[in-house]
Simulated scan of single mutants.
Amino acid sequence: MMNINSIIIKSIIDSLNAEEQRLLDEWLKTESNKRMYNNIRSHFYDSGSYLFNTSDEDVDKAWAKIGKRADSERKPGKWVSMIRHTWRVAAAVVAFIIIGGGMMWYEDYTRTTPPVLSEDITGAIRESVKADKADILLATDKTADIPSRHVIKPQPISKEQIVEYQLDAEEVERILESKMIETQRAKESWVQLDDGTMVHLGNNSRIIYPERFPKASLFGASSPREVIVEGEAYFMVAHDASRQFIVHTRMGDIIDYGTEFYVSTKSNSTRVALVSGKIGVKSATTQERILQPGQEASIAAGGSLSVAQSDIDRYVAWNTGKYAFHEATVRKLISIVSMWYGREVQYDESLAERTVSGVLYKYADIRQTLESLSLALGVEGKCFNVRNTKK
């Protein structure tokens, strides 16, 4: 049976059940108990203490700190004084715990955790810069080790450059202070944003981003981290629960929930492939759709949005610059090569389901890559034909 200490405390905060109320009423039939109860209740409200845990264990511990129960009839002054002091101390302790716990929660909630770059990623950065296929911009001073010709110099933007995207007035004002990085046909870029997010920008692409994202707010909603993308990009987003990360495109928005994903706005549509984590995708005419890893969303020019399963290997390979495979079909390998180089590769359909194992390297010449594939297949002659750039 619950002890009377717990019943008294629970009655003060009006949390008694029917059985507990019956036990309290029975106990209060004694005049001395009634006077003790009234004194406790009176001094409790005087102290202004209303927050505490009412579980039996915690209540018993709290009462134990008071010491042995005194006889309220023989030592009423001492008992009342102890009750008043105990509740005030308890209030201070509870306030400290609440504030301290709140600060710990807030620190954790607003903590920004940059993505951990794998050796494949760091290797791709080194190889692409070494092959003169990419430039780089890091938020730290690590660019000191990179030749100056490969260090990106962001450009200012104008309002005219962002009015075509689906932005409201507040978003426009925030983004107007941003910078722009734009790649050329033969070059990619690796861009590290203020929060540690790493963006791999494809050729013929651009990203508009702020040099400093808005800080988290203790009061009210924090402003989101927002960028604009045109072309294609692979995002490795820094986790920050307090600030959304939003990618704006002409066709719609991608809302990140801590993840890796690929975005392409080429071919008059927006395609988004989720590699890991979770993202939301929406257009001007649709509600947000949540994607799971291995899914790809497509937003058409009219705003319609569709979601389907996708082979994400080609997106990971595009980002890392290397594709190791075992018994992969020619059809799949050609789709990866076409995506890497932005070229349409024609081939004999009789080869489509032939399989081969090995490693492809993105920064090799496309003709060398296709010649290696021909040798692996054991075919002679010109079985692959590279057409003009399609992107």
Rank of each mutant, 00 (worst) to 15 (best):
R387E: 15
L377C: 13
G381K: 02
I366K: 04
S357T: 03
G294A: 05
F261K: 04
S304Q: 12
K362N: 05
Q292M: 14
A352S: 12
C383W: 10
I312Q: 02
R289D: 14
L360C: 06
Y347L: 05
K266R: 11
L377T: 01
V275M: 10
A284Y: 13
Y323M: 10
G302K: 07
A308K: 10
H326S: 15
S283P: 07
R387G: 15
T286A: 00
T285Q: 07
A352T: 03
S264V: 08
K332Q: 14
I336W: 06
G280N: 00
G303E: 03
R289T: 14
V379W: 05
I290W: 06
Y262L: 05
A300M: 10
V263C: 01
R331M: 13
V307G: 00
K362H: 12
N268Q: 13
D313F: 12
R314L: 06
N385V: 13
L291I: 11
I366M: 05
V337D: 00
A317C: 09
S283L: 08
K362Y: 04
V356L: 07
V316A: 10
A364E: 13
F325S: 08
F261M: 04
T369E: 01
A352I: 06
V307Q: 03
L360N: 02
F261G: 01
L370R: 01
A301T: 07
S357V: 11
T320Q: 12
F384H: 09
T320N: 10
T369C: 02
L291P: 06
T355F: 02
T329S: 14
A364Y: 15
K382Y: 07
D311I: 15
R367H: 15
Q287W: 07
A324K: 06
V263G: 03
S374C: 06
E353K: 07
Y315W: 03
G381N: 02
S335Q: 12
V330W: 03
I299S: 01
L351G: 11
